[in-house]
Amino acid sequence: MARYIPPKQSKIGQMIDVVVLLILSIGALYIPLWLGLAGSSKLPLPADNPTWESLGQNEVMVERWNALGFADPASAHDMITARFDYSFTWGALALMVVVIVGYFVMMLRLSEKEYREVIAEKFDGK
């Protein structure tokens, strides 16, 4: 097997690759945020006429909220009651495991294939 000589990429080909990379980075990471598909699942609990007591705030806490500019319980209500929803389905957890493990397995297998070519050409002159 002869030593591998890579083809020379044209300027237009390089430009297309640059655009593809830009689209991939923004498309995969920003578009889900923009569409509101991704984002923290932190939501405030609805409540009518909240009081500091009903929000579970003691005297020192109330004093700190006031110092922070939250003069009444209604203004601090959303921040105080917002909680993450940590409930999850086993299916979603399994999907996460499959995606992460699958990514590493795929990457290691394809890397290994490329690596064998590198080592063969470097050490065996193939």
């Binding site: 995969a28 990471l29 923290s40 993450f84 940590y86 979603a92 995606v99």
Partner: peptide, 20 residues
């Protein structure tokens, strides 16, 4: 990360899969 930010996790890893 999955707790509360699962979508970002999947989005980020999917990005790396596609670019790989």
């Amino acid at each position: 990360v999955f707790l509360g930010y699962g979508t970002q996790l999947i989005a980020m890893v999917s990005f790396y899969i596609v670019v790989s």
